Amino acid sequence: MFGGYPNLSEVAKIERIYSILYDWQTLLTGLAAIIAALLTVNSIGKQTRTSTEDARKQLIRSETRWEEEKKANHRLAMTALPHALNEIIYYADKHWNYLEKFAEESPDGIQPFRVDPLKLPAPPLAALEKLQPACLFPKDEEIANIIAALTRKIQYHEARLKLFHRKDKYTANLGSFLRTVIEIRCLASRLFDYFDNTYVQINIDQKTLVQSLNSIAFEKPNSTAKRITQQAIERDYRRN
């Protein structure tokens, strides 16, 4: 009613398969474990390679951003350079003019004198502070050395001048003082050259300049200042 009995040969085959599986089950389990381990190692390896590549890309992005920030900070530091250098050159010129009067009284350069601090400009400390950011990320290491030398020269000059702030006159070699003043001016000029070479020129088209000129001269559209400025703009663009 429920069908025929299984064939003896089929039963024998099934029993043989069970016997083989039973005899080899340990080995098959081990092979399965090895395969699983290999798959796991491969997956971990892919994740590790992906993480390493991501970390490398992140490092490149960070370095690129740092380089861009460094250049931006340097450009911003350079904007304070001309005004600071003007102050230092003014300081040097005033000291030269003051000491030059003593030199006229002593052709050999050896002259007893007393310095009146009220007739000399104060040390340009604020100007020196403005120069310091330019040392952080210079394009040329020499620039940092020039700024350090300039700071040292001014400090040295001021320290020697303090000896002559007293009531009594002291004899000194004016040539040495004047030489230091010239060195200060020379170093400031070197920094001016550096600024000129690193200055980023932004070209403004003629139409935009004329619009700005019309805006600033709105109340006096026929003024002489507007006329000569417009002529200068046209002349520059014809030259270019």
Rank of each mutant, 00 (worst) to 15 (best):
P6A: 14
L8Y: 05
L8Q: 12
V11W: 07
K13V: 11
K13S: 05
I14E: 06
R16Q: 12
S19Q: 13
W24M: 10
T26D: 15
T26N: 07
L28R: 13
L28T: 10
I35F: 15
L38C: 12
V41W: 06
V41C: 14
I44R: 13
K46S: 12
T48Q: 10
S51P: 01
S51K: 02
E53K: 13
E63N: 10
W66P: 00
W66R: 14
E67A: 15
L76V: 05
E87P: 00
I89S: 03
Y90Q: 08
W96S: 13
W96K: 14
N97K: 15
Y98E: 01
E100V: 01
A103W: 00
E105M: 00
P107G: 02
G109K: 02
V115G: 00
D116M: 02
L120Q: 05
A122L: 11
P124K: 04
A127W: 11
A127Y: 08
E129Q: 11
L131Q: 00
L136E: 04
P138W: 07
K139V: 02
D140K: 07
E141H: 06
E141A: 10
N145K: 08
I147F: 11
I147C: 06
A148S: 03
L163M: 06
L163C: 00
Y170S: 03
A172E: 13
T180E: 13
R185H: 15
N197K: 15
V200Q: 05
Q201E: 13
Q201D: 09
I204H: 05
Q206A: 12
T208N: 12
L209W: 09
V210Q: 11
Q211S: 09
L213R: 03
A217Q: 10
E219D: 15
S223I: 12
A225Y: 14
I228D: 03
T229I: 01
T229F: 07
R235P: 06
D236L: 12
Y237H: 08
R239C: 01
N240G: 03
